[in-house]
Simulated scan of single mutants.
Amino acid sequence: MKRLILHITVIAITFVSLGTYSQNNAFKGYTIEGDSVVFTFDVRDYSKFTQEYTGQVLDFTDFEIENVVVSGEFNLWSRDHWKMNRVNEHLYQLKKSLQDFDDEFSYEFKFVINNAYWAEPSKEDPNITKAAKNGRKIRDVYNLKMYTAFPKKDGNVHFKLKGYHDARKVVLAGSFNKWHESLFKMKKTKEGWELTLQMKPNIYQYRFIVDGHWMEDPHNTNKTPNEYGEYNSVVDIKEYTAFKLRGYTNAEKVILAGSFNNWNEHEFVMRKMDYGWKYVVPLSGGKHHYKFIVDGEWIVDPNNEVKEYDGNGHINSVCMVK
C-alpha cells in the first residue's frame, strides 16, 4: 500500500489503493474491519446513564441490562432497530456493512439500554463531542462520532508541516473530521509536525491550526477559496479500480471511456487477458459513468447491472468508489 505524502515544501500525490483495512480500536464504541463497522458496547466503559423521558442522570451500578441498541443519525435515532448481540457478561456487538452508511460517514450515535436509557461515554475519550440538537428527546449530552478519517501509524495519507518549531500545538482539521479544532493533533518531529491518517477515497479540504491560528498548506498548490476570504488546501485520495470486460476475445482493440477521462476515445487502451480485457485506473471517491468501445462500437458493461441515463439520453454503466 502506498501513502500520499503532503510536504510543506512540495506536495507529492501518490494514488493509493485502500482495499480493506482495520481501524485497530482508534476510538471506543466502534471499529472498522474490512468492509464492515463493528459497534462494541463494553459495560465497564460506562458509569452513568440518562433516562430519556425525565432526563435524570443515574449511576450504572446494579442496573439490569435486558438489551443494548445502537442509535444514531444513520437510523434516525431508533431505540430498537439496531439491536446488539451479547458476547459475554460485559460485551455487546453489532456488525454492519459500510454500504449501510452514506459517503460522508460522519455521524453522532450512542448506545441505548433497555430502549429507554442513554449510556453516557467518558469525557476522556477523544472521540466525544457535544451533541447537536437532535430533537427534544435527545438531550444536550455527549455523543460518540464517526469520521471519514482516523489516525493510524501505517495509514495511507501522511500530512507533514515543516518548520514551526516554536509552536506549542499544531492541529490538522478538515472536511474529513468536520473541521474539529482539537481531535487530530499533529506530532512534533525534528523537521516540524507530522500526522498519518487512514482515509477513504474522496476529495477533502483541510487546514493546519498552529497555536490557534488557521492556515492553508502554503506549498500545496491545490486549493479552493473558503467563506472567510482565504483558502482551504485540497487533497484528492484515489483508489486503483480495475475495469474488466469478459469475452470479446476476437476483438482487435477495446477502449475504456468514462466521465473520469472526459469520454476520451483513445486514451485508455485496455489490455487483452485470457478472459477478455482489463484496464486499471485511479479514481476519486464517488460515482463514475463509463462504457467500453469494442472495435469502434460503444457498449455498456454486460456484467454490471448498475446503469444510469446521462443528460443526453444515453445509458451508461456506473462504478461507485467508496
Rank of each mutant, 00 (worst) to 15 (best):
F101L: 08
N25P: 11
Y107E: 03
N67K: 09
G34E: 11
D100L: 08
V57Y: 06
N24M: 13
T40Y: 04
K110S: 15
N88F: 03
K96G: 02
V68A: 05
E33H: 05
D102N: 07
R79D: 05
V57M: 14
N85Q: 11
E64W: 01
I32V: 15
F74H: 13
S78H: 02
V70M: 03
K96Y: 05
Q23N: 02
F41T: 02
E66M: 01
H90D: 14
E64D: 14
T40P: 03
N25C: 14
V70Q: 05
G29F: 13
G72P: 08
V87I: 15
N88T: 05
Y53M: 10
T50M: 14
N85A: 06
H90S: 10
F39V: 08
F111C: 03
F49N: 09
R86W: 00
V57F: 05
M84N: 07
H90Q: 07
K28C: 00
E52A: 13
E33K: 12
N75S: 06
E64A: 10
D62E: 07
Y92C: 06
R79H: 09
E52G: 13
G72S: 08
L91V: 13
Y107A: 02
V69G: 05
G55S: 07
V68M: 13
N114A: 08
E66A: 01
N67Q: 08
F27R: 13
S71I: 09
E52I: 13
T40I: 14
G34K: 11
E108L: 06
N67Y: 00
S36G: 00
N85S: 11
V112W: 07
E108Y: 10
F101T: 07
E73F: 01
I65N: 10
G34R: 09
S97T: 10
E108K: 07
N24V: 11
L76T: 08
F111T: 01
N75C: 07
Y53T: 05
T50S: 04
S36L: 10
F39S: 12
Q56I: 01
E108A: 10
V69P: 08
E52H: 08
